[in-house]
């Protein structure tokens, strides 16, 4: 097992994934590091990558003219960043910026899509996992929509 394969299998997102698939997707991955303050992508960029965060913290932001940047979510150790690579129009919807030194595993989405086409069972497994992440984000967004900390007097 290569170092990269080990890092992949240790990340919670790939927990219990068949080592055969780990090997396959490792071919699309590389280790990356982001410095504090560094932009990883910006709204509107083509979405051809996603990341598994190993350590550090990244904020997703939208920029509102007149209000400046607004942090809408922070991601850290164990999180997955980016799912717009999986669905058309394959565009980033937010800015992503490292808040501190962040280590991650970066995936080439074209490569991953290729593997999934070759090996539909891997594709199914991967999309199940992404569906869960998308569901969690949606849930977190809905909870914030109801302003759960507020009193409504």
């Amino acid at each position: 097992m290569t170092t990269l394969e080990r890092l992949l299998s240790e990340h919670p997102f790939f927990k219990d994934l068949d080592p055969r698939y780990i090997k396959l997707i490792a071919e699309c991955a590389r280790e990356v590091t982001f410095k504090a303050g560094e932009f990883i992508f910006r709204e509107g960029d083509p979405s051809n990558k996603f990341w598994l965060i190993r350590s550090g913290k990244i904020s997703l932001e939208v920029f509102a003219p007149g209000r400046g940047p607004i942090m809408i979510e922070t991601l850290g150790e164990g999180d997955v960043m980016g799912w717009s690579w999986a669905v058309p129009p394959y565009r980033k919807q937010y800015d992503a910026r490292a808040l501190e030194l962040t280590r991650a595993l970066e995936f080439d989405a074209l490569c991953i899509r290729g593997k999934c086409d070759e090996e539909p069972k891997l594709g199914y497994e991967l999309f199940k996992r992404f569906a869960q992440i998308i569901g969690q984000r949606l849930q977190a967004t809905r909870i914030r929509l109801i302003d759960i900390y507020g009193s409504h007097a």
Binding site: P69, E73, T74, I143
Partner: peptide, 13 residues
Amino acid sequence: AARPDEWQGNVGV
């Protein structure tokens, strides 16, 4: 939610 100039911590529920 927060502006980056006022908050360096976590954002999310």
